[in-house]
Write a protein that binds this DNA or RNA. Structure first.
Lengths: 363, 363
DNA sequence: GTGAAAGCGCTAACAT
DNA sequence: ATGTTAGCGCTTTCAC
């Protein structure tokens, strides 16, 4: 009946009509179940007001017809898309090596699919593209909320994006103090603290740091943790070199540190990629790891155990982080109270790239 | 006026109304420009039938009001979402190490954003989840088309998903013979062929292979290229071990090969991760790379140059691949002729992990 | 508890 | 060339 209507009203229908009239609608389901459209709608939105018997028939009819509410129509009438956005800004080199995003996305998916939300992804290469992406996502009403990553100190994006009418969840280390609705954070600092303690207990007294791109909250959180821990241990704050998370920058930074009049006996890197490049750089100069130099990374990429020597590093549960962020964002979008988040704590993985100092007395 | 209408007609409006009436619609723009809604619609869809003057006024009005067509409403009335889907099925370990997806997605974005399409992403962990994902994407009408990756020989997904009414672009090496609308392929085989030739010219006569998860088109394409090339060169087909693209499987496979009565003097791996783990495994046994064993990877991950020794490997332009796939899918969705695709050819990157054989005469 | 009808904001026939 | 109008498929009052 509805189908007949269609073929009458839209004779120019271009959709693949293999067998005749196609798209099943709520009307078809209602007709088949012998109820009104609103009854069907009520059932599919877990609303009261439908008798158990009718409910049964409706579900059966929908199943028979293979019907499911159209997200398109639903989005329009509810003014909500039931989708959230993630904009990734990243340089090509880092893109394919960054262990964060794939895991984070996987985690987000878990949290999102529980609630039947979709993830709209956008990869951009610069800040300009990022602004545009958020603008478009908001103006076109493609998503109800977004995740904000790679947060900088004093980042204005939370406010900007919020002004666009989107819900926002900021994904950053706990230290981040941004004017955001909600921050979901991991404890980067704890990992670095454990790394420094580990090196200290191996007898290292001169511990350097290679940091990532300055300005990012996670870069600074790691650097500060390194600094503070040295301080707590009564050690002088060792040399620090700024890099940018890429392998080449890590290699260069390592050479800089080793060129120092008094090079450090251990280096804590802002990520694994730089640490591995650092090992390579040291090896090139005939400096052995860990005999002459101890190296600690950050991330625990899957390759870390297969580096020679295997890399000592810090591991976060990024998947859990993503799931928590997703659950929170969905709650925000729906105006509910965000769930209590309890993230697993950081792990410190000791492998072969760290060892006792040769020339100094162990602690 | 339109605003007044709204506040009358939808008194229960729950949207964030900070200052009063909110959402700007096409009606507001039309009113401001002194034309009808269809005129506005025509302008924003690049359709003829609007005078230059009116067009000007309309664009001005839209800009003043900060208006842009709502993707939600548009999707409903056009029966097209202007979004495409990508479903990623991957094990956790491989997820964060797979160099393919991030680059592919970045490429897809380039192709998509040209046409103002969005990417809906879904990460699933098993085949069951994958089926569900496609079903949902189709039934909820969330996307107009999808990319299919990780294709297996005789894969039925192209047909299955096509039956759901979605356009499909299959992303796989050229060899793939699947019943798909369109296959966008790279030439994996060419890379492996060059690798084998390179090893041959270094004097290697006994060349092994560590392959990835059996059944995938790209796994088989690489294995067959290795085999065929050995054949062409008149060399015996060396030993091959099946692995699964993970580091641990690569290490295990390497041990297996080296345990052979007559171990190969060179090994071609199905990806870099396994190759690097292979180097680590060899090193553990006191076998030096490349002096005692030459190693070739596949992918050229950003870490490849920083491995000790730096990894010789095959590089594809995955970003270009993604862009081509996206352009093709959009064309398919819109019923246009897909553009002629011209993918850059494979590169073979010689670094330190391959060297001349010691005991045999060079070619 | 159930059904009718008015939107949600845009597109596309159709009429002018 | 411009305006009118009927959908797109669902949600949600509001009477019955």
């Amino acid at each position: 009946m509805n189908a007949a209507e269609h073929s009458t009203l839209t004779p120019g229908d271009r959709t693949t009509r293999t067998v005749g009239a196609k798209r099943v609608t709520i009307g078809d389901v209602a007709a088949r179940a012998g109820v009104s459209k609103s009854a069907v709608s009520f059932v599919f939105n877990n609303r009261p007001g439908v008798s158990a018997a009718a409910r049964e028939r409706i579900l059966r009819a929908a199943d028979d017809l293979g019907w499911q509410p159209s997200a398109r129509a639903r989005a329009l009438s509810r003014s909500r898309t039931q989708a959230v956005g993630l904009v990734i800004r990243r340089e090509p080199e880092l893109l394919s090596t960054d262990p964060f995003f794939p895991l984070f996305m996987a985690g987000v998916e878990i949290g999102l699919s529980e609630q039947n939300y979709s993830l709209v992804l956008q990869v951009v290469k610069d800040q300009h593209g990022e602004r545009d992406a958020y603008e478009r996502l908001a103006r076109e009403s493609r998503v109800d909320g977004v995740f904000l990553t790679d947060v900088r100190a004093g980042d204005t994006r939370p406010r900007d994006v919020g002004a666009l009418g989107l819900s926002v969840v900021v994904v950053a280390p706990e230290e981040a103090d941004t004017e955001a609705d909600v921050v979901i954070g991991m404890d980067d600092a704890a990992g670095v603290r454990r790394a420094v303690h580990h090196l200290h207990s191996l007898g290292h007294r001169h511990i350097g740091h290679v940091m990532g791109v300055p300005g990012y909250v996670h870069t600074e959180a790691r650097r500060r943790a390194w600094e503070d821990t040295l301080d707590e241990l009564g050690l002088p704050v060792g040399p620090v070199v700024t890099a940018d998370f890429t392998g080449s920058s890590g290699a260069r930074a390592t050479h800089e540190l080793l060129d120092l009049p008094r090079p450090p006996s251990a280096i804590v890197y802002g990520n694994d990629l730089m640490a591995i490049a650092g090992i390579s750089a040291a090896t090139d100069r005939g400096i052995r790891v860990p005999e002459d130099l101890s190296v600690v990374g950050f991330d625990d990429i899957p390759l870390a155990p297969y580096i020679v020597p295997p890399l000592t590093t810090v591991r976060q549960n990024v998947v859990a982080w993503g799931t928590a962020a997703a659950q929170t964002l969905v709650a925000l979008v729906e105006g509910k109270e965000p769930p209590e988040i309890r993230l697993p704590s950081v792990e410190f993985v000791v492998r072969g790239s760290t060892g006792p100092t040769r020339h100094r007395r162990p602690s």
